[in-house]
Nucleic acid binder design. Structure first.
Length: 198
DNA sequence: GCGACGATCATCT
DNA sequence: GATGATCGTCGCG
């Protein structure tokens, strides 16, 4: 079942980041269906969060889609090379987002291997936001699109998840000081070999 | 398996 | 002109 707008429009972005663990993400780009189980996420909480692009309501051409309504994609380029896929949450005007950092591949693995330019499937194929976006074919062409469309969408999974298997940890790459540097807003599936780090 | 480091460029100051 | 919500490779062991 496709995740409905109400899922994304919650005010609790950290809760959504946790709830996204175990959900499914799919893309159909260039007529290739690819997707898998979300195993690692990070929450970015709008104005108060020093780690967010929208810290202190910062609003530029790059992060404009963070201000869209929950259920929108925010894609930006990092280090000039890597595309990062975020799920925008909350209502329009509140710049909350969840970075999808890793998935366990399920569908379209051959396509993912080709897009990544590697010879064989490995556990690192979708580990890390840059690798994940590349494998799924995501680029700035998907910035601002709906997560309820035919190009990019998320689904619930019937298989139950043991809540104790979800680990909370500090986010990756927070190069500043203060409480938001080490706040445990990164979530991942304990022991899953497709996560980017431990 | 791990740490160091260079790649590479859109974006913002 | 400086800066990244990163990745792949290399050297080491």
């Amino acid at each position: 079942m496709i995740l409905p707008p109400s899922f994304y429009q919650s005010e609790d972005v950290v809760g959504i980041a946790r709830a996204l663990i175990g959900k499914l993400v799919f893309t159909r780009i260039d007529n290739e269906l690819t997707g898998g189980i979300i195993v690692e996420t990070e929450a970015y909480k709008g104005p108060e969060d020093r780690g967010s692009h929208a810290h202190q309501m910062r609003r530029t051409a790059r992060n404009e889609s963070m201000y869209s309504e929950g259920g929108t994609a925010y894609v930006y380029i990092c280090y000039g090379i890597h595309n990062m896929l975020n799920v925008v949450t909350n209502r329009a005007g509140i710049p909350h987002a969840v970075l999808i950092r890793a998935i366990e591949p399920l569908t379209g693995i051959r396509t993912m291997v080709e897009r990544r330019g590697i010879l064989h499937f490995t556990k690192r194929i979708c580990a890390g936001p840059g690798s994940l976006a590349k494998a799924l074919g995501i680029s700035k062409a998907q910035d601002g699109i709906s997560l309820l469309g035919k190009e990019l969408w998320l689904e619930d999974q019937d298989m139950p998840l043991n809540e104790e298997e979800i680990i909370a940890a500090p986010r990756v790459g927070m190069n500043f000081d203060g409480p938001y540097k080490s706040i445990p807003w990164r979530f991942y599936l304990k022991g899953n070999k497709f996560v980017s780090k431990g």
